[in-house]
Amino acid sequence: MGSGAEAVRIEGLSKVFDERVRALSNIDLVVREGEFLAVLGLSGSGKSTLLRCINRLIDPTGGRIWIDGEEITAAKGAQLRRMRQKIAMIFQQFNLVRRHSVILNVLTGTLGRTGIAGSLLLRFPQEERRRAVAFLERVGLGDHVEARADTLSGGQQQRVAIARALMQRPRLVLADEPVASLDPALRHSVMRHIEALNRDEGLTVLCSLHDIDLVKAYATRVVALRAGRLVWAGLPEELDMDVFHEIYGEDAEMASNASL
């Protein structure tokens, strides 16, 4: 852990929105292969911007990012699309195509490698369909293959999104507050599937979270952002009251003191 090759290298990353709002300031970060790296911070601290810069959903205003040694900040067109295929993303709001069936949503994970003509007609190879069904069974949704995505509960939709991520055959998974819009009781069921991506599939995971309990339960390493700056990096067990105040400010109160 932490000894593998570099999965992601970030140097001097900055993002300024509309020439005024500074979302990220000069971030340096290396993520090693096989890590489950949690990104902590208040809402608005830049966690989401950081993750979206890594797969270029947002274009940074400064700095460079390498994925497996290949610079994504310099990639364009076909090269950028090829690099994105290796980076799956899981969103807070699941972001499924609501009117499509569950299996069609999972199959969109293959769009980077399927032929354009077939995919515009919503056609996918039989082989891919079999994989999609297998992944849905793995996340416990084998009975919902043909259901419309918006008929599923939030927790189920996020598991569809995880199956979609698996479909991409990624090497890296970006999870942006994956359980923040879920009922607290369902959080662990989704987090365990993300943990499985890391542990069983050997994927590198970058996951933004704001719940320290979840960080301690799942992460192998933690970094924290505050007002767009990297203010702390360490191991989950090193998170204590001092660090907590450093990340969240002196006024913050611990939701669950007992866990520290």
């Binding site: 959903l57 699309r81 195509v97 499509h100 769009l111 991409q168």
Partner: peptide
């Protein structure tokens, strides 16, 4: 914009992003 981001993140081409991210929402 969520589904558009999600489809874009899979490495899809622009036409595929429109077909999956935009069209189902506007039909």
């Amino acid at each position: 914009p969520g589904p558009v981001d999600a489809i874009k993140a899979t490495g899809a081409r622009t036409l595929q992003v429109l077909r999956y991210g935009v069209v189902p929402q506007v039909i």
